[in-house]
Write a protein that binds this DNA or RNA. Structure first.
Lengths: 242, 242
DNA sequence: GTCAAATAAAAAAACGATATTTCTATTGGT
DNA sequence: ACCAATAGAAATATCGTTTTTTTATTTGAC
């Protein structure tokens, strides 16, 4: 059924350096998280403790605990005596995610516009500048550049809602954002820096800086919803094949 | 600092009957969850693996995994090499929860009103009837009755949004609802069946059945926000003392 | 007397072995 | 040929110990 290849996963103890400070559980958690978000681990594929235990070179309960932490973000599921699986993907699920993300990000941007101080505004200007730069200047299909664009896009959206103080809102929204990215990775194989969203980001930026909450909210919602048709097309094509 | 008494927790293997089907992890998870939601386990108190291991009569990694699952709902926190703690409580946090719950439940009730079929409507009528009955007829301070009211109140709210199909929305809202109840238990020591919310429930019910989404949304939001001042008063009193 | 380093105690994290359950393939009956 | 029961294999869940880290205490220098 689903592939179970884990060849891209390496022994945790070989990753020296930065991983030293973290706990082993966190290192395994992050490795698995990255592999699920990138699509390397296929949706619904089983995550066998014994297999992962060996590939990471760690204990069984360490793996189980790392997997348990992925339950927080809904990136894996578990049922009774039946082990762990990577979360499924579906068009319906993606639509739900988009709907929720639009709701939360709209509320967060409104709050940010209302509460944001100079420091927030400056950070947002900087984040926008960094994003605009890569969106205009860079060519756009090299893996390195796309990854960098992804980071800057995330930073832009985070900076925008940076003055929101509701930890619950930010937490839920972060989970939804991660899942959105996962859908992008899974559905769209040959990524590129999307030049067409440049103007959208610019318009949102202008509205936020002008402290026009209604407009910023509206543009943000539209921006988020715009990913639906593209993902829907690609994903339903994949669903038909598989 | 914080109390660590766990005297109300019992050996998992003594709880015969229904607990047989579940895994040990789930049984421990539910026991801890109940103790945290009821306030028996104090906010911010440490949850020592070795202590819990002995009281439940289970293995260490079983306890750790149960605790890890409580991270999903934010009922416990963990940091680095420093173990687990019960989630903190604060007035600011409660306000955030209320704000989010109002947002989500309002959206969910709107969707339910739009999509709800006869079956949903019937179930909602039944749930309302059961709640109205206990709110009008029962005296209201016996522990048994309060617990039953709590169940019926939850069932009422769940039934109301029962036609909402967004699993993410329902999941987030469920988490927030649980936390709300926890705040009630912690802040308000001598509980009683609140007669004063009877008319609120009735008004919400009428609006929903009349398929008046705007009114239902408005009343639901007001209903949820109404808990803020009472919790705030009690909780800030507690904070001042402790 | 105060601060800091060294040491001891406590707790958390990690491990790997064992027990239990689920899944799969094979056999026997209708 | 097909279904049910059963034995075997695989995988999960559980356990108790070992290792590592943190916290508390003591000791010693200034």
């Amino acid at each position: 059924m689903q592939g179970e290849a884990v060849s891209f996963l390496k022994d945790i103890n070989d990753l020296d350096g930065e991983s030293q400070s973290r706990t082993t559980i966190e290192a395994v958690y992050e490795a698995l998280r990255g592999a699920i978000l990138s699509g390397e681990i296929e949706p619904e594929s089983r995550l066998r403790v014994e297999v992962l235990r060996k590939t990471f070179g760690v204990g069984a309960s360490t793996v189980r605990e790392a997997l348990s932490r992925l339950l927080v973000e809904n990136l894996v599921t578990t049922e009774g005596q039946r082990g762990f699986r990577a979360a499924l993907v579906s068009v319906a699920d993606f639509k739900n995610i988009v709907e929720m993300r639009a709701l939360l990000e709209a509320k967060a941007v409104r709050e940010s516009i209302q509460k944001g101080d100079d420091e927030w505004e400056s950070a947002f200007v900087a984040a926008h500048h960094r994003l605009a730069k890569i969106e205009t200047e860079m060519e756009g299909r090299e893996e390195q550049a796309v990854a960098e664009w992804e980071r800057r896009n995330r930073a832009f959206h985070n900076a925008m809602i940076g003055a929101c103080t509701n930890a619950w809102l930010l937490n839920f929204r972060e989970i939804l954002y991660s899942h959105s990215i996962r859908y992008l990775h899974i559905a769209i194989t040959d990524r590129s820096i999307p030049r067409d969203v440049r103007s959208e980001h610019q318009a949102i930026f202008d509205a936020v800086i002008a402290r026009n909450a209604d407009l910023a909210e509206k543009l943000t919602i539209e921006h988020i919803y715009r990913s639906v048709p593209v993902i829907e097309a690609r994903l339903s094509a994949l669903e038909a094949k598989g």
